[in-house]
Design a protein around this nucleic acid. Structure first.
Length: 564
RNA sequence: CGGGACGUGGCGCAGUCUGGUAGCGCACCGGCUUUGGGUGCCGGGGGUCGGCGGUUCGAAUCCGCCCGUCCCGACCA
């Protein structure tokens, strides 16, 4: 492509409200523009990169035998009512002129299953995998970080339909293989981690995560790769303090004015590991719950929700009514009418807890002897705690979720009546899986992972162009004519080339903008180039010069590009 | 939804406290200059100061309401 006359608006300064590096660079490099909160337009060069990742995804989906189709963005509400997902907070809802309730699709499990229910009848029709690239709309409570969390975005979503769980496992594994090839080809650093099934429901799930400080999720992983999981469900081996012998019964002692774990640790001279933290919440049905974790730990709301369901923090007056004391002096001993959930770390040894009398704590409290509790993992993993598989110290790392895979089972096929007849003529529900990738998030993650002070450093596979030619000189000059020839030759060798042939743009500006855009290879043609060469070539990563002789220049550039 | 901040030409900002009719850099247009790292000089065009209402002789500036955008938290298929 010749640049003159094309839309490529670059910015010297990033918009003031851009925070994430990828956000700043995507706007500055003329890839995207914001229309409104969480709504971004892709400009031509941004679209080129988006199409490149989409192409990679499509190739790998086709390779595992998935079939591409395209489903509507707007759906009748009844289908969502059938699965109980109508009315979710993030769902855009509207009415057509006849007053019929419609929704804008947040995802397409319902619609795929609706079609599967009509088209798939026999075990001979299974398995199947269908996928699409389609816009999703979600009324996010808080769009952020440029393109990373938006209200409208394209997703590659695919769905597998199998006869049974064994078939689902095979489809799931096929997708996992495709995803690993996709993210490798995209040039990302990425992890596959165990993830929460969330509201998708089902039998198991993994997420694909690209490490980045701009990420909204955190994973725990062991350095050797033995284990990796979203902290929402990550487990760890917590260190054990030297408890010493527990007293025969809990011993009360005065702790005037002590309200926090830190204060209690300082006051008693004990490690926070010897202390139990009491957190009170109320479930949606009004049941008070006392959650116990060790002093150094933080309660993980999502993990607790798996045990007690949806809940909210208790109010101070509620706490006083149930415990007879204020936060800071609460504990599990002698409490009635309160559901008690303790982290496994509390089940070992003995701990200091509140005595449910202001200003008094108990030492030597033993679970099972002094109080009863449900034991469940409800704490956040701490960096450095032991990997549950290898025992190595766990690493906590912020990540961008770039894809996910879910074993849905019959969660959708059941309510929507997607069944088939097996070999014995019995009706069976189709066993499904669903698999997503956010192409734009892949781009943002690539930029988060590949940038320097000059701008974007694209992975080869995702750059808008393979080669960025900077012409210093007029179109009709010898340099201009040579640039045209080289452009044609490089294109003929299968490279996608941008020729900056703009008149009236200063060389310095062209160089700066080329580095901002970040294509893997830059070639400069100017007075120094002709007639003897060499041809100045810069590799964007590291901004390293790799000049090549004029003779055979195109082939040499192609070779250089291949070697990157 | 809770907390915080911001809104002045395309982008980045000053001016607001202390009211007097809008300014700077970049970008854009014209001329000259320059021609390998956002060139230099000269001359231009472009802004109902987010909106509505109020106070005032007079409002970007003070007051009220609303809208928008971002950040932290909550939430997040």
């Amino acid at each position: 492509m010749r640049l003159s006359g094309r839309l490529w608006p670059t910015l010297r300064d990033a918009p003031a409200d851009a925070e994430a590096i990828s956000h700043k660079l995507m706007v500055r490099a003329g890839l995207v523009r914001q229309l409104a909160s969480g709504l971004y337009s892709f400009l031509p060069f941004g679209l080129r990169s988006l199409e490149r990742i989409i192409r990679i995804i499509r190739e790998e989906m086709d390779r595992i035998g998935a079939q591409e189709l395209l489903l509507p963005v707007m759906h009748p509400a009844e289908i969502w009512e059938a699965t109980g997902r109508y009315g979710l907070d993030e769902q855009f809802r509207l009415q057509d002129r006849g007053g019929r309730a419609m929704v804008l699709g947040m995802t397409h499990e319902e619609i795929i299953t609706w079609h599967a229910a009509r088209e798939l009848r026999s075990y001979r029709d299974l398995p199947q995998s269908w996928y699409q690239f389609q816009t999703k709309l979600r009324d996010e409570p808080r769009p952020k970080s440029g393109i990373l969390r938006v209200r409208e975005f394209i997703m590659k979503d695919s769905y597998s339909m199998d006869r049974d769980v064994a078939g689902l496992e095979a489809s799931y594994a096929a997708h996992a293989g495709a995803y690993s090839r996709i993210f490798d080809r995209a040039g990302l650093v990425w992890y596959m981690v165990e993830s929460d099934v969330g509201m998708m429901g089902g039998m198991g799930a993994h997420e694909y995560m690209a490490p980045s400080t701009a990420g909204e999720d955190t994973i725990a992983r062991s350095p050797g790769g033995a284990y990796a999981a979203n902290v929402e469900l990550a487990v760890s081996v917590a260190g054990e303090p030297d408890f010493g012998d527990a007293p025969a019964a809990p011993e009360p002692f005065d702790t005037p004015g002590i309200g926090t774990i830190d204060e209690l640790a300082a006051f008693t001279g004990l490690s926070p590991r010897m202390l139990a933290k009491s957190v009170v919440v109320v479930t949606d049905d009004g049941t008070p719950v006392l959650a116990l974790v060790r002093g150094e730990h933080t309660l993980h709301e999502k993990k607790l929700a798996h045990v007690v369901g949806r809940h909210r923090p208790a109010q101070p007056d509620e706490i006083r009514e149930w415990f007879g004391a204020s936060p800071g002096s609460l504990g599990p001993v002698g409490v009635e009418g309160v559901r008690i959930v303790a982290d496994p770390t509390i089940a070992r040894g003995h701990h200091v807890t509140g005595a449910n009398r202001d200003g008094v704590h108990l030492r030597g409290v033993v679970l099972g002897r002094d109080f009863q509790a449900e034991v469940a993992d409800i704490r956040e993993v701490l960096e450095g705690e032991g990997c549950p598989v290898s025992g190595e110290p766990l690493i906590l790392e912020p990540v961008i979720e770039i894809g996910n895979i879910f074993k849905l089972g019959t969660k959708y096929s059941g309510p929507l009546g997607a069944t088939y007849l097996d070999q014995e003529g019995r009706e069976q529900p189709i066993v499904m899986g669903s698999y997503g990738i956010g192409p734009a998030r892949v781009l943002a993650a690539a930029i988060e992972q590949g940038n320097d002070e000059a701008g974007i450093v694209w992975p080869k596979a995702l750059a808008p162009f393979d080669v960025h030619m900077v012409l210093v000189g007029d179109a009709g000059s010898p340099q201009g004519e040579y640039a045209e020839r080289l452009f044609t030759e490089l294109t003929g060798l299968g490279l996608e080339v941008l020729l900056d042939d703009r008149a009236g743009t200063k060389p310095g500006e062209k160089f700066v903008e080329a580095e901002l855009l970040g294509c893997p290879v830059r070639v400069t043609i100017g007075k120094r180039t002709l007639p003897d060469g060499p041809l100045e070539v810069q590799v964007r990563r590291g901004r390293e010069r790799r000049d090549v002789p004029l003779d055979g220049a195109a082939a040499a550039i192609r070779e250089l590009w291949d070697s990157l």
